[in-house]
Design a binder for these strands. Structure first.
Lengths: 353, 353
DNA sequence: CTGTTAGCGCCTTCAC
DNA sequence: GTGAAGGCGCTAACAG
């Protein structure tokens, strides 16, 4: 009874079926199909044709048991920010699929245990490679990377330096983004440009600020930074509110700036709100810009912003992983991904005094 | 040479090792460990202990080859909206992990071919179950569902009716959300409440509108709907702009409403912008509210909204899937997930004339 | 109750 | 060149 049912489901034909059909050995079929040496071209052709006709498809799962490597990639996300990685995930998955790889996704925001079991399960699945996304510093991360490498699993990271010759790195060029955006404003005639960010600077905000700083100094201008020192939740709404209040407080002390840059779109949105309250026209009197292009289109006027290259990064990470899986002795490489400027209507020429 | 290397990596001990250690047969070990009938308690205990001591862990991958079912769930996302499903995905994955299941994610926005290869690859991976998320009507979706069912793969959907006794359904209670939000405003004394939505109404917007309609009529109030008929891109910024412009145009024709509901947060944001431009105070003169809680916190004042139960839905879908995998003869169930009201400062008592 | 035999579908020696 | 074994690690049928 049961075996009948099984047969009804499993109509997939196997190498064995091909072999029976052609009246040759199954191992010969295997060799012919995988391109192993020592099979006559004639046989290869025969096997190929029969496979085609009978609609044979290799069972990658079964072959994984033998080879130890499944056509699956892991994507480990350990960052507090939601949403921002959605395009990265999608591009990663899509690129993997193009190469016949599936993607197993793990969110590991919740402390040590999550990491351990996620890694255990990925090893169980015999994944061929994994990408680690973790802007936040995570204790023990390097150990986890080593664990994978030791098990013959190729590894990759976003924004995470790691001293090993077998690991490729994809990083976002935050500095260049800050530099370009600032120069965009300078080119529009702005000379007094304020940059608002967190006080506890590291990673992404740090790079953006540095770029701003460089651009200002190169142009002989004085950088003006407002750094928020309150602990912040990183929820979009909270960041927005923070910037809103901070600008209102700081306004009177400022020396009539004509442009404001927020360290991300939420900051820029908050500043927009403060400026509207003060009846200052954007971009007539003041220009405003942000980073990410996550929420930049929600203001009126819509915000000029530097779009994070999440899509490109996701595709690149998957591509690098697969390349290294297929050829493990490649030298490690670092890839700086550039932001795109999205010029909308919140920036314009500096007002003439 | 190679086999040495392999051995260095694979220190995992197998059932065979256990059997050799205990000097019994490997199949007995298997039975003892899986709880199959016909093994003496004494042997079971012995095997358990030895497994514990030697640190044996079952290779679920190998067992999947035999049983045909891997401890992996598929999550198929076929919707145009980005970001909104992030909490659902995370909750789904997290719930799956709690039950020792991994999650393979597929985005299938890009036409037919994507569907076919995604499904092919999931079958290859011998997934035990899959959840389909697709608010958009997708041609052939039912065929894909059937395909899975025929292959013994458990299936689930979000917001997708499907006439089969083997499929559970999780749906969001859009109607209730519209009803509750409207009543929230009515309770605050509002009698003239406008609802702005798309003209091409179906699915989510339809339910929200119906709830609004019911609440208004129950209270003896006249529903007032502004329906946008321009084709719309569903990008957040575009929706916001649309609502902004639509309200500015319609304003003079409106009979002094004291409250506005947007069919989602983006619509509400756009209306907020229009109201600010007209120097109408929120919530002093007019209250504003939306749905989703995706971008609601980005306005000033922050928006009252009905939060979509994405997190709960994700957890529920995974839970239902796993339950049905373990016991396939359960009756099909439907689960209505309720929105949560998030009362912020964009709504307040109706002004007294 | 335990052990035997036979797979799941593929790949990798090794003889012929 | 081809075929004959054996194995990846676990399960499922049957026999003892």
């Amino acid at each position: 009874m049961r075996s009948k049912e099984k047969k009804r489901l499993k109509k997939n034909i196997t190498m064995k079926d091909l072999a029976a059909y052609l009246e040759i050995d199954r191992t010969t079929v295997s060799k012919a199909l995988t391109g192993a040496p020592g099979v006559s071209p004639k046989t290869i052709e025969k096997v190929r044709e029969a496979a085609e006709r009978l609609g044979y498809k290799k069972d990658s799962f079964a072959s994984s048991l033998q080879t130890g490597k499944n056509s699956v990639l892991g994507l480990l996300l350990a960052d507090f920010r939601r949403g921002i990685y959605a395009p990265l995930i999608e591009a990663f998955q899509h690129t993997a699929m193009k190469h016949q790889y599936s993607t197993i996704l793990y969110y590991v925001n919740r402390g040590q245990d999550d990491w351990i079991s996620a890694i255990e399960m990925l090893k169980q699945q015999r994944i061929s490679g994994a990408t680690f996304i973790s802007a936040a510093a995570t204790a023990g991360l390097n150990d986890y990377l080593d664990d994978f490498l030791k098990n013959g699993i190729t590894v990759n990271t976003l924004e995470r330096n790691y001293a090993d010759r077998q690991i490729d790195l994809v990083a976002l060029n935050h500095r260049q983004a800050g530099y370009d955006l600032t120069n965009h404003l300078i080119a529009l005639g702005h000379r007094s440009i304020v940059f608002m960010t967190f006080a506890d600077i590291k990673g992404t905000p740090e790079g953006r600020l540095q770029g701003y700083d460089e651009a200002m100094r190169s142009a002989g201008l004085q950088p003006m930074v407002i750094a928020e020192d309150k602990p912040v939740s990183h929820a979009s709404g909270d960041e927005m509110l923070l910037a809103y209040e901070r600008l209102k407080l700081a306004w009177d002390r400022l020396d009539k700036p004509t442009a404001f840059i927020g360290v991300n779109d939420n900051f820029a949105l908050g500043m927009m709100h403060a400026l509207k309250e003060k009846h200052i026209s954007v971009p007539g009197e003041v220009s405003v810009a942000g980073f990410d292009d996550l929420n930049a289109a929600l203001a009126i006027p819509q915000l000029t912003t530097m779009r994070s290259p999440m899509r490109q990064s996701g595709a690149m990470l998957a591509e690098l992983l697969i390349r290294r899986i297929q050829q493990s002795n490649l030298p490690a490489s670092t890839h700086m991904m550039d932001y795109d400027i999205v010029a909308r209507s919140s920036t314009g020429p500096a007002p003439i005094d």
